[in-house]
């Protein structure tokens, strides 16, 4: 049986793994228990900085630490990082300081808190900032591994993690995982789905269902949305007549937007974007939200069938 895990746990584990590097500093804004930075705080209180409920201050304190040679990791809910957007823009991205931001509870999948907590625009926002790396890994193990890789980056980053448990996709220390490189999780001859975050396991589920009715569908985990893996997009667009992106994010500006921008310059490949269609969510369980917003496994299946019939 597939094991379930939440990507936010991977962030918490990564911080613990990196603790041997004394330059690693963790910043919290009263949500350490949720983002899982609390595990680091428990063991390394002297290297954990509480910023209270004050995200704007937190981002710039992190910038000051980074300018002094430290490697700060600051986390809160994805939605609350956005309150400090201009601080991130002017204080972190512009001077290119290696501050690593983790926004947990991203997307509508976060569920019953309702639309105030369901960030559907974070990836678009951070992707538009020069110097920023933007990631949305799909499970705990890949989140852990990719977060640890951030230590070698000299640029700032934003990583979205999810609150709820989803099927674990990767083993620990999977050699395929590298910032900026998508991973083909499943080969297929008819069409490829490019997904990120919680929608990766949904896409695999859809591909398996499609297989049972005669469709051969590839699934790619595009955990890094910026820089997008253009080599892989080149390969996919030359191999397939159509590609489908799947994300728990507004279809404007996220993974689908990023892939569309790239393909529009050099490819005739048809692209269909599955995502939140420019609307806010509401309170509901994760699965209920995906259904409400037409981004559930069945929606992926239906779209694949439709697109394949169009391109035949």
């Amino acid at each position: 049986m597939t094991e379930l895990a939440a990507s936010r746990d991977g962030y918490g584990k990564a911080l613990l793994s990196m603790a041997t590097d004394e330059k690693v500093i963790v910043l919290e804004a009263d949500l350490g228990k949720s983002t899982k930075s609390c595990w680091f705080r428990e063991k390394y209180p002297n290297r954990t900085i509480s910023c209270g409920i004050g995200e704007q201050n937190m981002m710039l304190v992190a910038a000051g630490l980074a300018s002094s040679g430290y490697r700060p990791f600051a986390s809160t809910f994805a939605i609350f990082t956005e309150r400090a957007f201009e601080q991130v823009r002017n204080g972190i991205a512009r001077p290119n300081l290696p501050v690593h931001i983790c926004g947990s509870h991203g997307g509508t999948h976060t569920g019953t808190d309702g639309s105030s907590a369901q960030s559907i625009e974070d990836i678009a926002i951070y992707r538009s900032l020069p110097n920023m790396i933007v990631m949305h890994p799909c499970d705990d193990n890949s989140t852990e591994q990719l977060t640890i890789q951030l230590l070698k980056q000299d640029s700032p980053s934003y990583t979205r993690t999810a609150r709820n448990k989803t099927p674990r996709i990767y083993e620990i220390n999977d050699s395929r995982l590298e910032i900026g490189k998508g991973v083909i999780l499943r080969e297929g001859g008819d069409i490829a789905i490019i997904a990120c975050g919680v929608m990766v396991s949904k896409s695999i589920e859809a591909a398996e269902l499609l297989n049972s009715i005669g469709y051969d569908v590839a699934v790619v985990d595009m955990h890094t949305i910026k820089p997008i893996d253009t080599d892989l997009l080149d390969k996919l667009s030359s191999r397939y007549k159509a590609l489908i992106t799947v994300e728990d994010h507004n279809i404007i500006g996220g993974l689908g937007g990023s892939v569309a921008e790239y393909l529009s310059q050099k490819s005739n490949t048809i692209l269909r974007r599955i995502g939140v269609k420019d609307r806010f969510g509401e309170s509901g369980q994760a699965e209920e939200m995906l259904k409400l917003l037409n981004i559930s496994t069945n929606d992926i299946v239906d779209t694949v069938v439709e697109v394949i019939s169009e391109v035949k």
Partner: peptide, 15 residues
């Protein structure tokens, strides 16, 4: 923005 950044620098000096 400067005071928050300065606080980060001050904390770094302490560390």
């Amino acid at each position: 923005m400067g005071l928050s950044f300065g606080l980060g620098c001050a904390l770094a000096a302490r560390l």
